[in-house]
């Protein structure tokens, strides 16, 4: 069950993404080559879909319960640049790799992953 605070957090997060990614709508509407489409999921909702093959360098800020994560896109790579969480496991994951391993910030319920798994595998262990 989603409470009002959580719903508000998702709305704020979505608004932040829209504000900070002025060209997102253009990117989303483009035809994307298989395997390079990345989803940003905040608290279970897909808030952003990106084609890394044509995405310009920029940063995206996502907020969850007042805590911020800054996602960076650089030269077609995506990674967690900053995270207001205790362990920073998401930052240590490094750049999103093409085969299955998502970037996960558990405390802030934030996931960055390839939409269709990416690469030539179904998952990564």
């Amino acid at each position: 069950m989603k409470n009002k605070n959580t719903a508000a957090a998702v709305v704020i997060a979505a608004a932040a993404v829209i504000l900070l990614s002025s060209i997102a709508a253009v990117v989303i509407s483009r035809r994307k080559p298989a395997g390079s489409t990345v989803e940003i999921i905040s608290d279970g909702k897909v808030i952003c879909t990106l084609d890394l093959s044509s995405e310009p360098d920029r940063e995206i800020t996502v907020e969850y319960k007042g805590r911020k994560n800054i996602i960076a896109i650089e030269n077609g790579d995506i990674y967690m640049k900053e995270a207001e969480c205790p362990d920073h496991t998401c930052m240590k994951t490094g750049r999103l790799s093409e085969a299955g391993v998502p970037i996960v910030c558990l405390p802030n319920h934030l996931i960055i992953r390839y939409k269709n798994g990416g690469g030539d595998t179904d998952a990564a262990a």
């Binding site: 490094g94 790799s97 299955g100 391993v101 595998t121 990564a124 262990a125």
Partner: peptide, 16 residues
Amino acid sequence: FRIAVRHPSGEGNLAK
């Protein structure tokens, strides 16, 4: 299923 085995550094995959 094709399952990747992560590289010990945590970045990328070593094998499948």
